[in-house]
């Protein structure tokens, strides 16, 4: 019943994202319309994939750091991506893929740094240190970004920030293809970690006693979730809130066992972002709202309702 509901919601969000837009396309022309085929359809698909990736990554990281407040950008990735994008613009690196690649590279560097700092005693990954390292690396990247921005011309930095917070406006079949090739591996790695994450939630020593290989598990989950988030940033900028609120909504509906929770988070994240993006590009058309604002505006009331239900039972 819950799965059916989520499936219907996901399908409805997707159809809505294709049918609704600032330009009126009659339903009869939907299949032949250029706007639908080259703009709305890839954008709807990308919104769904990125939303799913962020929510899946958030749910997994919450289990990894054993903290329900974790989200995909907790570990410094958004700071690194922002620095990468700003650097690319400051250094006048051109080309259609320059910004996404620079942001991706920035996120990867941040991920590597945080990972290295999170290793305690050479081999063990300490989730508490990981959080602190993520906050520190993120803050440092933000500081450098601000320094570069304050020294450069206003129009340039506006470009960087528009891109970084621009959401899915750059969606094309190319970015969809990139996501389709890149996402499956980390998504599978995280889905396969579902049951081990249930065990890890008890703590590292109890998890070992129950038969989990804790260190490889933590490394796998951290790297897969970070690589997924870095790619999401590269194709759509920083989109907040999906990775925090969707896992919690799904926890309220499915409980905390990761075998149902992780796939539900993926579907729920895709649904929320497809829906939010539809609102973002139609509400103040012909201009666009940053989709991150919409995810918060749509997500918070839903979240509040679920939270009420959750705490009442």
């Amino acid at each position: 019943m819950r799965w059916l509901g989520l499936g219907v919601a996901a399908a409805a969000a997707f159809v809505l994202a294709v049918v609704v837009g600032p330009a009126h396309v009659p339903l009869a022309n939907l299949m032949t319309s250029d706007i639908v085929r080259s703009l709305r359809l890839p954008r709807a698909i990308l919104a769904f994939l990125v939303g799913g990736a962020l929510a899946l990554s958030g749910a997994s990281l919450q289990a990894l750091v054993r903290n329900p407040l974790a989200d995909p950008f907790l570990l410094g990735l958004s700071g690194g991506a922002g620095l990468g994008a700003v650097l690319a613009i400051a250094l006048r690196i051109g080309g259609p893929w320059a910004l996404p690649l620079a942001a991706f590279a920035g996120a990867l560097v941040a991920m590597g740094l945080v990972y290295r700092l999170g290793l305690v005693g050479g081999s063990a990954l300490d989730p508490r240190v990981l959080i602190l390292a993520g906050v520190a690396v993120g803050a440092f990247a933000s500081a450098v970004t601000t320094a570069i921005v304050s020294l450069s011309e206003a129009t340039q930095l506006r470009n960087a920030f528009l891109w970084l917070w621009g959401g899915l406006s750059g969606a094309s079949w190319d970015t969809v293809l990139v996501a389709c090739v890149y996402f499956p591996l980390p998504v599978l790695v995280l889905l396969a970690a579902a049951r081990p994450l249930d065990v890890l939630a008890l703590g590292e020593e109890p998890a070992r006693h129950l038969g989990a290989d804790v260190e490889p598990l933590k490394r796998r989950v951290y790297l897969a979730a970070s690589l997924l988030t870095a790619a999401a940033v590269a194709v759509s900028g920083v989109i907040g809130f999906v990775g925090l609120v969707v896992p919690h909504a799904m926890r309220a509906l499915w409980g905390h066992q990761h075998r149902p929770l992780l796939p539900a988070a993926f579907l729920g994240g895709g649904t929320l972002l497809a829906l939010s993006d539809t609102v973002a590009r139609t509400f103040v058309a012909p201009r666009e709202l940053p989709v991150g604002i919409v995810t918060a505006l749509v997500g918070v009331p839903v979240f509040a309702l679920l939270l009420r239900r959750w705490t009442a039972s």
Binding site: R66, P206, R208, H209, G211, V214
Partner: peptide, 18 residues
Amino acid sequence: RRDLARIVGVVAQREENP
């Protein structure tokens, strides 16, 4: 760890599930 967990069951001192 997996093979050992089929032979040894442990009730550890501390455990906390968030």
